[in-house]
Amino acid sequence: MEHYNMNLTLKVWKQKNTNASGSFEIYQVKDISSEMSFLEMFDVLNEQLILEGKEPIAFDHDCREGICGMCSMYINGRAHGPWEKNTTCQLHMRAFKDGDTIVVEPWRSKAFPVIKDLMVNRSAFDRIIQAGGYISVNTGNAQDANALPIDKKNADDAFMAAACIGCGACVAACKNSSAMLFVSAKVSQLALLPQGQPERESRVLNMVAQMDKEAFGNCTNTYACEAECPKGISVSNIARLNREYLSASLSTEE
């Protein structure tokens, strides 16, 4: 891999706080190495801004290895930028070339209000999990782990759904700001496992109700979520959610 340096123009969303109105600012960065990660490029820019006496750009990030789900940038019109199955922190500058202009925006959704610049509030996801994204088992209640054999196929499917990192790229990419992929991943994981059966119906009804309450949009099956999901969560989970929801709605007595 040949390394190269580049000069870039960045068009970045700046917003002081949730209530302020924001706007784009234009920045120039020079001598960016193709080996840098996208966030390291932002580090360089922020260092430069601080030394110039200007406000650095606030953005969310933590593990920088693609698993914590904290980073969240909408880069050139795509959640987490141009690479497939990737988070912003794992995007590297060799995805760009000298002279490029890069537009960076925060996740846009009513349910994810902007906190500052590129940071958004994703606590709606926590509240959806609180509504039922768990198995009610107190510490110490468990039987021996191998007392409950689980079909490998189901276990593998549950794992694939559980790989969700809760970053919100699905919501960001969806034209309707729908959170169906996120919700369906958790519903699927638990519906596929025998441990999840006792609360199966109430879980799906409550989680969907909370999702609606948080003002996420509806799923219209464009599948943009799956295409932009850094962990490749499949939309077949959304179908499972629909199935679970329909059957629970029909059988509930309330």
Binding site: K11, W13, F24, Y74, N76, G77, R78, P82, V103, E105, R108, S109, K110, A111, A173, K175, N176, S177, S178, A215, F216, G217, N218, T220, Y223, A224, A227, E228
Partner: peptide, 17 residues
């Protein structure tokens, strides 16, 4: 769905997804 995203993106590459 319109209400769910009050502020639109300035740049969208939706054809990619």
């Amino acid at each position: 769905n319109t209400a769910a995203r009050p502020t639109k993106y300035a740049m969208s590459a939706a054809n990619e997804n």
